[in-house]
Amino acid sequence: MLSVAVAPWQRPPVILRNADVPHYAASTMKIAVLAAVHRSGLDPDREVPVVNAFPSAVGGSYAHSRADDGDPEPWELLGRTAPLGWLADRMVSHSSNLASSLCLAEVGPAAVAEVWRRAGASAASGSPRGIEDAPARAAGLTNHVTARDLLRLLTSLEPEVLARLEHNAHRVDLAAGLPPGTRLASKNGWITGVRHGAAVVHPHDAPPYALAVCYTGPLANGQDTGDPAARLLAGISSRVWACRHRLAPHVV
């Protein structure tokens, strides 16, 4: 299943394809966690104990696998502390799963749910559990998104939060379909069978626009690079870029 939503920035969508179909959220849920951290009022310099044990959304606890986390840096601090702001940055810049759960533990799931509510997201989207909360997953509790709701989420973010999304180091899907050096605030997510990307793109010669693409299917091999589904998203991003001057503020 391929879902696409495109909108001129802060305007209604102009391209919608299967935009209300729910997909497993993968790491796109970290956008909502980032917003919850920002809105919490917690000091970004607050030192957070770096642990690998977290309360499950259904009771009990869960832990992360270091081998399955693409960002080694937070793991180097295990047993020590790290600033909350630094953890929030690693969560989105290098998609750290450990940092994500540490941030979620600081703000709580209710704060993340409030981010989705304030964005005006549908009931199809939400982040009720940590990204590797295995007990909650086994109980049927999971994180879902739709392409349209990812646009709503991006639109609801404060400039400071969007600025953090400009530090995304994973530039193999939506970013790869843009000319080198194009400014964008983005977050992607991938596991086997899933590849998503959501971004605010700032062309140098046209107004900004928001793009969300969600793909669930056999092309997605779960690798951060060398993923055929990432090339699919790059191709869609390139086609949207090619019509950036023709994006109009009305729904089709």
Rank of each mutant, 00 (worst) to 15 (best):
A53F: 04
V33F: 06
S3M: 02
P49V: 06
V48W: 03
A57M: 11
S3Q: 03
G41D: 05
V14I: 06
H23Q: 07
V50R: 15
A57L: 14
A25K: 01
P13W: 00
V21K: 09
L16E: 11
V6E: 02
L2F: 04
L16Q: 08
T28D: 07
L34A: 11
S56L: 12
V21R: 13
Y24P: 08
P55F: 04
V51H: 12
A35E: 13
V50G: 13
A7T: 01
P13V: 05
S56R: 09
L42S: 10
P44A: 12
L2A: 07
T28W: 00
V58S: 10
E47P: 11
P12V: 00
A35L: 08
S56H: 08
Y24F: 04
A57F: 02
P44V: 09
P12A: 11
V33E: 03
P22K: 04
K30G: 00
R11S: 04
P55L: 01
D43H: 12
M29E: 13
P49I: 07
W9F: 09
V33Q: 01
V6K: 00
R46K: 12
P22L: 15
P8D: 01
A5V: 00
S40C: 12
D43A: 14
V48G: 14
A53L: 11
N52Y: 06
A32N: 03
A19I: 14
V48P: 08
Y24T: 10
V14R: 02
W9A: 02
A36Y: 00
T28K: 06
G41A: 10
N18T: 11
L16G: 05
G60C: 12
P44Q: 09
G41L: 15
A35G: 09
F54R: 09
V48I: 15
I31E: 01
N52P: 11
W9L: 05
V58C: 12
W9M: 03
P12F: 00
P44T: 06
F54N: 11
K30R: 03
V6M: 08
G41C: 15
V21I: 12
Y24L: 14
A57K: 09
F54D: 15
S56T: 09
N52H: 10
S56P: 15
F54W: 08
H38M: 10
V37P: 10
R17T: 10
A36I: 04
A5K: 00
A26S: 09
Y24Q: 14
V33K: 01
S56W: 07
G41P: 04
S40Y: 05
L34V: 08
P8H: 01
R11Y: 03
S3K: 01
A5P: 02
H38T: 11
P12G: 03
A7H: 00
V21P: 04
A32V: 02
H23Y: 07
V50E: 13
V58W: 05
N18K: 12
E47H: 07
V51Y: 05
P55A: 10
V33T: 14
P44G: 10
L42R: 15
P8Y: 02
Y24S: 12
Q10P: 12
A25C: 09
V6F: 02
P44N: 07
A19N: 07
S3E: 05
A53R: 15
R39N: 12
I31M: 04
N52Q: 13
L34Y: 04
